[in-house]
Design a protein around this nucleic acid. Sequence first.
DNA 1: CTGAGTGCAAAAGCTTTGCATCTTG
DNA 2: CAAGATGCAAAGCTTTTGCACTCAG
Lengths: 137, 137
Amino acid sequence: MTKATPETTERRSTRQRSLILDVVQHSHAHPDAEEVYRIARRKIALLSLGTVYRNLRVLVEEGLIREVQSAGKVVRYDGMLEAHSHFQCTSCGRIIDLPRVPKFDAPKNPELKGCEVQDFKLDLFGLCPICRTERKS
Amino acid sequence: MTKATPETTERRSTRQRSLILDVVQHSHAHPDAEEVYRIARRKIALLSLGTVYRNLRVLVEEGLIREVQSAGKVVRYDGMLEAHSHFQCTSCGRIIDLPRVPKFDAPKNPELKGCEVQDFKLDLFGLCPICRTERKS
DNA sequence: CTGAGTGCAAAAGCTTTGCATCTTG
DNA sequence: CAAGATGCAAAGCTTTTGCACTCAG
């Protein structure tokens, strides 16, 4: 439904779009739209929030950045395109990027009959080194 | 932080709360608040949407149901508490429960050095049988 | 009875969109 | 220059909240 229409649409490159891409790619913090807006405005002062939302959507559509589900309701963005996983510490909340994705068997669950699996997301939870040490004491 | 306050708060059981719990537990569709509301109103006609939101939050707090991150912005709920994975259709948003969790190698990423991995969550994404068929046409 | 829970509606986020204007190709 | 992109602000949705009333314990 909301699929890419096979191009009547020509795409132009604008200062705003490159800047927004740059901000997401250089942030390690999985920023949401508001944060991208705040950072980007340091470069283009009269940037509009609407433009940020519009471009984040465009960039996701083009596969240049990626949406990540966070715990809250807001959508966050990730400029790291290589497949990777996250480890989140259940004690302090810190998120560690895991560039190498643990391998797992192609799921053969009967429930997936007829489904086309395109992607997956793996999140690990536990104690980070710091919290683990603290707990021992 | 948002940990259970050691109870000044007494909790009462109301028709509305039990009904909402019942609806989530018996739905296989990972309903969002609106859907819970729609279904629950068949039993309590003048139920209020605000009450649904309030109780969903309470039930999650008590660990009786679980929030699941969906691709959209809305929060969805899951009455299945046993460990399981999800497959979500990227086209229609439908979520399918996968009771059997795919096996994967214990992650050996160097980033995890010193971490104690306690749990993990795997989500699959792709096209459900229905949307897959539609696309082909 | 007392206060947690409810219904209702208003308010508060976050995101999208219409429109006139500006820019890119 | 034509059409995509922007800025601004209004509109849209989902979720939260204030308040008076209700009902469980």
